[in-house]
Design a protein around this nucleic acid. Structure first.
Length: 489
RNA sequence: GGCCCGUUGGUCUAGCGGUGAGGACGCCGCCCUCUCAAGGCGGAAAUCACGGGUUCGAAUCCCGUACGGGCUACCA
């Protein structure tokens, strides 16, 4: 592995960036960084039906959001472009010509329908499914004539009769062997002249001098075919590393059926990119026996294929959220405020201008939030009471607290104590509030809860003294008095 | 059906012939405490899928079985 490392992430833009794809990208990226190699992004858009530019843009923006920078690829360029398969036809036809000249490929005139029925029959008979090589033995003069006459045909790879088993050493799963009799003469170029996936990827990977192919498990069975293409092309065979799948809780491949399955779903839920990268990095790879929080720097300094686990992993959204909370708590107040401002303006609580003017106020609010939030989207409901003129008191909060014996007296006494305050700082408020139980004999717990309900509308809220201080004296008193008079009725 | 791959607490994992099988999430309890969190401490939770070997000794090595997954296209 002393050669220079070149790896690639080659998504097909048939959808947005999936969690599984994101992990594959992270592993490739980390591997490249670890070895001082090159990480290339290539868009495998050879499926014209489902590939869209919108998806390509979404994938790239998701990667950038994650902090996964590619060294070569769309928008950044590189010496091995173009980086879209749809623009690489010249390479594929050149490769095909090369194979034709070498006699490594032959035309097949079978129709898709015939192939299908032959396949069905073969499978029913003996379980085999490969192509019967009907056209392989056609005389060369005839096939040349038919091709020249424009008869529809595909091109198939002529697997050498003496090839034997295909054996390769997968960097994560070890030695894998595929028996030669499951290797049929598969199609490399379709009747419309476009390359099949197994052909296009190999041509590209060979031309781009990719040294390590780190990809999903679902490509494991394709690997022997691809090795055959490398051999036919006379290109060096890269190291393969197959990553196991990411499952939903039901043991099926993670998908939209399970809820959020795309990177941007998690972004919208208020997950931090560094938390998602951390979580995915450790979903199938480990640094040692205890590391659970790992930053990008450590990851890119220590990632290794040897420590990638072979078994599939169930995606645990709860653990991701816990981890997100860890990152949220690690942020400084300034960083946290930067993250919350868009949410507050988005909720219509304040304008960007307000946010700038009230920066100090926001900085006081931030630490109250960061300790009790796992996702950014929990912030808005938690702070809503600070941005409304009045507050709606929850039904059972009213029944459970305000209608209790002594609550009314507690509110009145609190209004009085607070009204006398000049300094409306949390410590001053605390002192005033603590005096209420002393003078009235009402339990502290009831006093505090009554005030909390009156001011926030709920029995659960941010810390009381700070909440009152942030709300301001006037609004706090208004709410306490309003609750009191509603009770007096 | 055929071919491949996988199997350590509910989940992610450590382990690479001799451990009381370690950590994390989640769960439960206690402490802290103005509610909720956060934090601290403690606990329950794994016959290492099962059955055979190999070995003085297997979660670790070998062979089967079961279960799960992937591939089996002129999709990627």
């Amino acid at each position: 592995m002393s050669e220079r490392v070149r790896v690639r992430f080659a998504p097909s833009p048939t959808g947005h960036l999936h969690i599984g794809g994101a992990r594959t990208a992270i592993y490739n990226w980390a591997f490249a960084r670890r070895h001082g190699g090159t990480f290339v992004l290539r868009i495998d858009d050879t499926d014209p039906e489902r590939s869209t530019q919108e998806n390509t843009a979404a994938i790239m923006s998701a990667l950038r959001w994650l902090g996964i920078q590619w060294d070569e690829g769309p928008e950044v360029g590189g010496d091995y472009g173009p980086y879209f398969q749809t623009r690489r036809h010249a390479s594929y036809s050149a490769a095909l010509e090369h194979l034709k000249a070498a006699g490594a490929v032959y035309p097949c005139f079978c129709s898709a329908e015939d192939l299908q029925s032959a396949r069905d029959a073969a499978r029913a008979a003996d379980g085999s499914a490969g192509y019967a090589r009907t056209c392989r033995t056609l005389p060369a003069e005839d096939t040349a004539a038919r091709v020249a006459a424009g008869e529809p045909h595909t091109w198939r790879l002529k697997v050498r009769a003496d090839r034997g088993d295909v054996v390769f050493d997968d960097a994560v799963r070890g030695e894998s062997t595929f028996s030669s009799d499951v290797l049929d003469d598969f199609i490399v170029v379709r009747s419309d002249g476009t390359p099949t996936y197994n052909f296009a990827t190999v041509v590209d990977d060979a031309e781009m001098e990719i040294t390590h192919i780190i990809r999903g498990d679902d490509h494991l069975s394709n690997t022997p075919r691809q090795i055959l293409v490398y051999e036919a092309l006379g290109a060096p065979i890269p190291v393969f590393a197959h990553l196991s799948m990411i499952w939903g809780p039901d043991g099926k491949r993670l998908s939209k059926r399970h809820g959020a399955a795309n990177v941007e779903d998690y972004r919208d839920l208020g997950i931090l990119p560094e938390a998602l990268v951390n979580y995915l990095a450790l979903l199938g790879w480990s640094l040692d026996d205890k590391t659970t929080i790992i930053d990008a720097e450590t990851l890119t300094a220590s990632f290794s294929l040897e420590r990638v686990s072979k078994n599939p992993a169930v995606f645990d959204a709860e653990k991701l959220e816990w981890m997100n909370g860890v990152y949220l708590r690690k942020m400084t107040a300034d960083q946290f405020v930067d993250r919350m401002v868009p949410l507050l303006t988005g909720a219509g609580f304040m304008t960007g201008e307000d946010a700038a003017q009230r920066r100090l106020w926001l900085l006081e609010l931030a630490p109250l939030l960061s300790d009790r939030v796992k996702r950014l989207d929990e912030i808005v409901p938690m702070v809503a009471f600070l941005f409304t003129d009045t507050v709606t008191i929850e039904e059972d909060a009213r029944a459970k607290i305000l209608e209790k014996e002594g609550a009314l007296a507690a509110l009145d006494a609190t209004a009085e104590a607070l009204g006398a305050l000049g300094d409306f700082s949390p410590p001053a408020i605390e002192e005033a509030l603590r005096s209420v139980p002393e003078t009235t004999g009402i339990k502290t717990r009831l006093v505090f809860q009554a005030v909390r309900v009156a001011v926030t509308g709920s029995t659960v809220s941010l810390p009381l003294f700070e909440s009152l201080s942030l709300l301001g004296k006037e609004r706090s008193l208004d709410r306490i008095r309003a609750a009191s008079s509603s009770l007096a009725d």
